[in-house]
């Protein structure tokens, strides 16, 4: 499409190279999926430990949380991908990506779960006690369900946060969306087209999740959870 020498957008180019973006998006999504899943598991485990204030373990986990929240994912990835091989531990790009996401995400999820657990009122626990439930049963039937429900909006916010963080994966030799965009700009100088497709790709991934999150938040508020 050309108008008076001022080129608008090369739609043909976009159509030709769209599949590259789709493949890259799939890579991003699959790495995000595993990273987020492990982060949730790690987070729940750590959150419970912090909630029960288990002596030595809580200290260690608090240390882990502070360490991972105060350092950028990029630096964590560099350490995993370039640093570890020097002591004989070689992890693939995909492995580093997932481990990095888990390490970073786990601490954020742990905070969400911990505060969700602590938000369950003491009177709920006492109600459980007064009908004879033991500690484990109270956590399982009374505290955990309520804590999880309350945590959902914050968990979603973390999911979005983690997916955004995956944009650095090209630094550890992964052909993700940023890599594809940069490549196309470098090879064909179709900057506007490449950037537009990049933005669209991320919008397609993130907008639905963001809308779903707002929807869930509204429904939870209606059901009487949270404020």
């Amino acid at each position: 499409m050309e108008l008076e020498g001022f080129e608008v957008l090369d739609l043909v180019f976009m159509k030709t190279y769209a599949p590259l973006f789709v493949t890259a998006a799939k890579l991003t999504l699959s790495l995000s999926f595993w990273g987020i899943l492990f982060a949730l598991v790690v987070g729940l485990f750590c959150g419970l430990i912090l909630y029960f204030k288990i002596p030595v373990a809580s200290r260690i986990i608090s240390g882990y949380v502070e360490l991972s929240r105060n350092t950028p994912l990029l630096v964590q990835l560099f350490l995993l991908y370039f640093g570890l091989p020097k002591v004989g531990i070689i992890i693939s790009s995909e492995g580093c990506a997932i481990i990095g996401l888990t390490f970073l995400g786990g601490s954020y999820m742990a905070e969400v779960f911990r505060s969700g657990l602590e938000s369950v009122e003491k009177s709920q626990i006492e109600s459980g006690m007064s009908i004879g439930l033991d500690r484990l049963q109270i956590v399982r039937y009374v505290v955990l369900p309520q804590a999880l429900t309350v945590s959902v909006p914050a968990l979603f916010a973390n999911v979005i946060f983690l997916i955004k963080e995956t944009s650095v994966f090209s630094a550890v030799a992964l052909a993700d969306l940023m890599y594809v965009a940069k490549d196309l700009i470098g090879l064909y100088y179709k900057t506007n087209e490449a950037l537009l497709m990049l933005v669209i790709a991320y919008l397609v991934i993130l907008l639905p999740i963001s809308l779903l999150s707002s929807l869930l938040e509204r429904r939870l508020r209606y059901a009487g959870f949270g404020n």
């Binding site: 009177s123 109600s127 459980g128 007064s130 309520q146």
Partner: peptide, 9 residues
């Protein structure tokens, strides 16, 4: 109790 505290879930 005074505050009923049925389990909301």
């Amino acid at each position: 109790f005074q505050s009923y505290d049925l389990f909301p879930n």
